Simulated scan of single mutants.
Amino acid sequence: MTPLVELDQVTHRYPLARRQFVHAVEGVSLSLGPGQTLAVVGESGCGKSTLARLAVGLLTPTAGSARIAGELAGPTLSRTARRAVQFVSQNPWAALNPRKTIGHSVGLPLVVHKLCTGGNERATRVAELLEQVGLPAGYADHRPGGISGGELQRVTVARALAAQPRAIVLDEPTASLDVGVKATVVNLLLDLRESLGLGYLLITHELDIARHLATHVAVMYLGRIVEHGPATEIFGSPRHPYTRTLLAAMPVPDPTRRQLLALAGELPSAVRPPAGCAFHPRCPYAADACRSVVPALLEPTGHAGRSSACLRDLEISHV
């Protein structure tokens, strides 16, 4: 079955002065299948949001290729492929025009993709979309400044649904919301996935959100994927030292739970990333080879569907 999103050795670098670059994404290969939820997790600044924009064609890769619904992302992407994968940003206030009504914003994809024949049909469909995300149809007459942040994020989801997508790229969809509102948005996404068969590419630094939503997880560190696999296995038995430190930092109700590792230091500069394994300056297991060799993302023997980019994977996997 054709992946809805497919990244093949994608690299993206932002140019700076004096021939310097921000190494945002380096050689990433990922795919999202129909009905799958792939969570890309990691610290802020590791390149997750750049990856999200590459996945929907908002950015052009410096190297490698991005495909959407089987088509190469770019100016020639067909209308059908553009509709297939939609985008929801982390900041609903910036995503919606404050001067336009919510009905206008939600209905715009219906016009762009020619999914309705007139104003009455568009208004009816906008009302259906708002109700589908748990908002009153009357909100169509409101402007963004008149409703809450959680309601605004539901509006951006409704707008994405207007194009009748097969998958949605969600860039930190709950990052700007308080705890109670986060739960309602997560439940909404779960309900929509079940009822519509949607796939999600979920970008998040909130591991509890990834645990609730994801079927698969890719762990990203300084532009590279360092571990990938089914969510239950990643959360249950992490292999890469960075994944272990992320999980150790998760708040848990059981204070007696064994802590895996403590994450020390700051994320290195993406302008001058470390040689070798980018995680080696913060890794308690780093050896001399880690300082010079970039580890490949490999599938350990006997662990189908799992992959880890660590030179010492076999040595530390049972530690």
Rank of each mutant, 00 (worst) to 15 (best):
T124I: 05
P34K: 15
G64I: 11
R159W: 08
P136R: 07
A137P: 04
K182C: 03
P251Q: 10
E6T: 01
P253L: 14
E315A: 15
R211I: 06
R82S: 00
M1S: 14
G27W: 00
G149R: 10
G35P: 08
P273Q: 00
P98N: 09
C310F: 01
L190S: 12
A55P: 06
T117M: 10
R257G: 05
P251S: 08
A81N: 04
R244G: 05
T62M: 01
L170M: 13
F87C: 06
S44V: 10
R82V: 02
V169S: 07
H113I: 09
I316W: 08
L110V: 10
K182V: 10
N97K: 08
L16H: 13
G118P: 06
V106M: 12
E71V: 05
P300A: 06
V133H: 12
G149W: 08
R83M: 04
C277R: 05
R224F: 01
G199Q: 09
L177R: 11
P300K: 03
V219D: 00
G305M: 04
T243D: 02
A123P: 04
L202C: 08
S237A: 14
V41K: 06
L198H: 03
R312F: 14
S29G: 12
A262V: 15
S176F: 02
P268L: 13
A81M: 11
R312L: 15
V219K: 00
T60Y: 02
L189C: 09
F21D: 05
R125Y: 05
P98H: 14
L170V: 07
I68T: 01
A287P: 00
A309M: 07
L202H: 04
R282F: 02
L58W: 04
P165A: 12
G302S: 12
A63K: 11
V293N: 11
N97Q: 09
A163E: 07
A84D: 07
R79I: 04
Q259Y: 04
R272N: 13
Y242N: 05
T124P: 00
P92M: 08
P173F: 09
E299C: 13
I203T: 02
A69D: 15
S269C: 09
E71I: 08
L202A: 03
G57E: 07
D191N: 15
I68G: 04
L311Y: 12
